[in-house]
Design a protein around this nucleic acid. Sequence first.
RNA 1: GCCCCUGUGGCGGAAUUGGUAGACGCGCCUGACUCAAAAUCAGGUGUAGCAAUACGUGCUGGUUCGAGUCCGGCCAGGGGCACCA
Length: 891
Amino acid sequence: MSLPAFAPQPTSSSMTASRYNARDAESRWQKVWNEQGVFATKNDDPRPKYYVLEMFPYPSGRIHMGHVRNYTMGDVVARYKRAMGFNVLHPMGWDAFGMPAENAAMANKIHPKTWTYDNIATMKKQLQSMGLSLDWAREIATCDPAYYKHQQKMFLDFLRAGLVERKKSKVNWDPVDQTVLANEQVIDGRGWRSGAVVEQRELTQWFFKISDYSEDLLNAIDTLDRWPDKVRTMQRNWIGRSEGLLVRFALDPETTPNREDELEIFTTRPDTLFGAKFMALSPDHPLAAAAAAKNPKLAEFIAETRRLGTAQAEIDTAEKKGFDTGMRAVHPFDPNWTLPVYVANFILMDYGTGAIFGCPAHDQRDLDFVNKYGLGNLPVVCPEGQDPKTFVITDTAYDGPGRMINSRFLDGLTIEQAKEEVAKRLERQTRGNRPVAQRQVNYRLRDWGISRQRYWGCPIPVIHCEACGVVPVPDKDLPVTLPEDIDFDKPGNPLDRHPTWKHVTCPQCGGAARRETDTMDTFVDSSWYFARFTDPWIADRPTDRKMVDAWLPVDQYIGGIEHAILHLLYSRFFARAMKKTGHAGLEEPFAGLFTQGMVIHETYHKQDGTFVTPAEVKIETVGNTRKATLIGTGEPVVIGGVEKMSKSKRNTVDPDDIIGTYGADVARWFMLSDSPPERDIEWTEEGVQARWTFMQKLWRIVGEMAEIARNAPVERPAQFSERAQAVRKATHGALSKVSEDIEKLRFNRCVAHIYEYSNTLSAAIGETDDANAGAPDFAWAMKEAADILVQLFAPMMPHLAEECWAALGHTTLVAVQPWPKVEAGLLVEDSITLPVQVNGRKRADLTVRRDASQADIEAAVLTLDGVKRALEGKAPKKVIVVPQRIVNVVA
RNA sequence: GCCCCUGUGGCGGAAUUGGUAGACGCGCCUGACUCAAAAUCAGGUGUAGCAAUACGUGCUGGUUCGAGUCCGGCCAGGGGCACCA
């Protein structure tokens, strides 16, 4: 990055000498904070606690602007709450396991551990250069055996508590990398790293039984009132509750492989039972398999559906196909009415019972199906105002409200009444001593598959024994550590290929046995790190119950919206599982959640389409148009769209460059200004310069105020002149507004208030001449103003604040100062100016005493010139006075 | 397809939650300082008009003394979920 002319220059002049030198000051103050240990948090501090946490980073190499934004916001909250008298916990750690480390190992022949710890060292240094008020003594890395041994312990406790199970399931399998991939790692049907077409495989995997908590996780969303609605909605949808009826259909014994077979289905629309035209089974349904055993053509059909791709894109476009099994299901309300049973490729085995009844008139998918196979449809719900005799369905199913038709005893009922009636009747009806139907609530949420065929993850602490089956590793043998002598020459799981690691003796029978070589999904690591921070030193158990219960929940959690479901849902499950196994005492880990927006930047590309970085581009503004050229060659560059910073678009800005040139405070101030924190923020060079200019302005006016403040008496004067009082009103007004907006995380408004306040002070300084500068009351007001100004921006630009604080003659650190108190009396004006409207249009202002009576105001308003003119001599119909707000005259 | 969010100057955005639309910042224009430039400082900047004034918060209709804000119907952009029975 080129050094702008106004950035701190090594050449000195009389002007630059009075400038604030961020580079020098920042490292100096960071050293002081560090030496005095001002951000170390004690666990036995009696003050009320406040836990502020930002989502910990993956050590990918270097920090990016997204981190700068995220951690700046958290730091403002931490510093503010500290000043408010809370014992603040503000820790940092590393989400250090994961695939990129292995990819780097394969590409560069570097050990994943080396790569990870190198990155941690680099990024830690970068974070420290930001001046974050973190308690580094609590730093943890999830790849440290001292961390993951506790995770293994909890896995075993969960296993004993019935929260973990091993089961066969369909998974995404990457045939090149030879590993299971999470759904989000499959892009357009291909492995995100290898590019290989992903296959569907049935594998035995470890699962956390998150679905045991479906109902609880859903209901408790209502209690998360300090979470964004958007995230709460997303989680509700993800859990996906639906109420319905499980119905057992009898099968015509003459048509079934086994005469006693029956078919159970799940439906949310039992009201439409009389519109049924067919039944459909998942290709994976046991009944389908039984029928296929006797029907080679059906077996071929099922095999074909399995061959079909499993990628989302293919599923979306796949044709709905069915195969008539020849079986007939008996309608539960009519023994003489039978329905054909199909195997259909669109029925999922793991939702409901893997089987449905199809009512084509009121379900689009079922309608498409019958239209293809010529099964017809019968409408049973008629919309209001439609004649049932003429109501027909052809291509579009009707799923709106209405009354039942063509449905025997249900005719005339509403949908809700019909659902209830069907449920009641079928619950009473029995076959084989069991009711034909029962009410059921179904969830979309699936159990969490945590097995990964990867090296760089937390080993799953179990042993497979021929004789004893799955045997947990005894607690005393934890941790199961990763072997370090590992090679990545071949694709697949290096743990599985390791010559010795997996060969162990069975803890139960002492015979030869095999270690589990799968490791845990890295989302497990991040599901409880916030609990570990409360006492990261405790060695013999995952958490200290006293500490974890004292600190949790996290009062303010800040991170990206991309974790709205995965990490945030997993952590909510983990808290419940930890409670059940005695490792923590509460269910909701994050009381307050804030999801911040992305950092975006213009893109630049050459004529041939190749992207160039902002650092390589020079921008000139001529009038209202901006022109970009390549630095050095002068080659013209096209200014493209404003997009998320990414390596592929090359529109990234390195935080180190900004911090090195302008200082961390400028980067922090930028991140807090202008854009509301939940929205995307556009990083621009002009913006950086503007923040730098303002930083210098603050330094200058604090210096000028320090001059005036030298005449301030120690004692607060009893009386203040009008000029002094005006300054004090501005001071306490700004204090009140900034405090309120920090509480609400509206940092952009805080910044605006500070600008406004500094403009007011700047004007006050300008109006000060030698004659009145010496007035003790004014000097005292200016001293108060300067102190509070510095304290107001201290959470945001902490280094500049310390420098200013010292310049004001303080010998303490502003970082440990208590937050100033608002003098409420100064916020109330004696006289107020009300806007006066005539018919909702502003015509005049009226200045009155604050406690003026309604009648006085009404009378005064009618004497105003602007009002008289607008009334044109007519008498007003009505005068509306909204106290302290506005007056409206209705003509 | 279903669900959710957002539309305000050239730009980012503010508006005490129904009460002066455009705070604050960027950019731009003018001036001061300077041989000059940068930096800095002062002033201006929604549109039309010399002005009074009129118009103006995606479009459209409504409620209200009063609507950016509430309600109905559209349009546009963004996000989430999606063979979920």
